Computed example of a mutant assay.
Amino acid sequence: MTKKSTKAPAKKPAAAKAPKRGAAEAEQPAPAAEVTTGRGGKVAKTQLVEQVAEKSGLTRKQAAQAVNAAMDAIVEALRQGQSVGLPGLGTLSVKQTAARTGVRPGTSERIQIPAGRKVAFKVATQLKGAL
Rank of each mutant, 00 (worst) to 15 (best):
L58F: 04
Q47Y: 08
R60E: 01
V52K: 01
G38A: 11
Q80D: 12
M71A: 15
A77R: 05
K45R: 14
K61Q: 12
E76H: 08
A32F: 01
G41W: 08
G38I: 07
A69M: 12
A33M: 10
M71D: 06
E54V: 07
E54S: 13
G40P: 07
G57V: 05
Q62Y: 03
L48F: 06
G57A: 06
Q65E: 13
Q47G: 13
A64Q: 14
V75D: 10
A69E: 09
R60V: 09
Q65H: 02
T36P: 08
Q65K: 06
A44C: 08
V67W: 05
V75S: 13
G81A: 09
D72A: 14
Q62S: 09
K42T: 15
R39E: 10
A30N: 15
V75L: 04
A69N: 04
K42Y: 08
M71R: 11
K45H: 00
A26K: 11
M71T: 15
K61H: 06
A70D: 01
E27H: 06
E27R: 03
R79A: 13
A26D: 05
Q62K: 11
G57H: 04
A69G: 13
E76G: 13
A69H: 00
K61C: 02
E54K: 14
A69C: 04
E54A: 15
Q51D: 11
Q82G: 04
Q47T: 13
P29R: 10
G41P: 03
A32E: 05
E54G: 03
E34P: 03
K45T: 10
I74R: 07
S56Y: 05
E34H: 10
R60W: 02
A63Q: 07
S83D: 09
S56N: 10
A70Y: 03
E76A: 15
T59A: 01
I74Y: 06
Q62C: 01
A63G: 08
K42E: 09
V75I: 12
V52W: 04
K55N: 05
V75K: 09
T46H: 01
G81Y: 13
V49E: 00
A30D: 13
Q51G: 02
E34W: 10
A66H: 07
E34Y: 09
A73C: 10
G38C: 05
P31W: 03
M71G: 12
T37F: 00
E76Q: 15
V75P: 02
Q80H: 09
A70S: 07
T37L: 15
G41C: 10
L78Y: 08
E50H: 02
V49H: 02
G40A: 00
M71L: 15
A26V: 06
R79F: 02
G57S: 03
K42C: 00
A53V: 00
K61I: 11
A73R: 08
V67D: 06
T59K: 01
E34I: 10
K45D: 03
E54L: 15
K42L: 11
R39Q: 14
S83C: 05
D72N: 14
Q82L: 02
V35S: 08
P29F: 03
R39C: 03
E27V: 15
L48K: 08
G40C: 01
A66L: 13
E34D: 14
L48I: 11
Q47I: 08
V35I: 10
L48M: 14
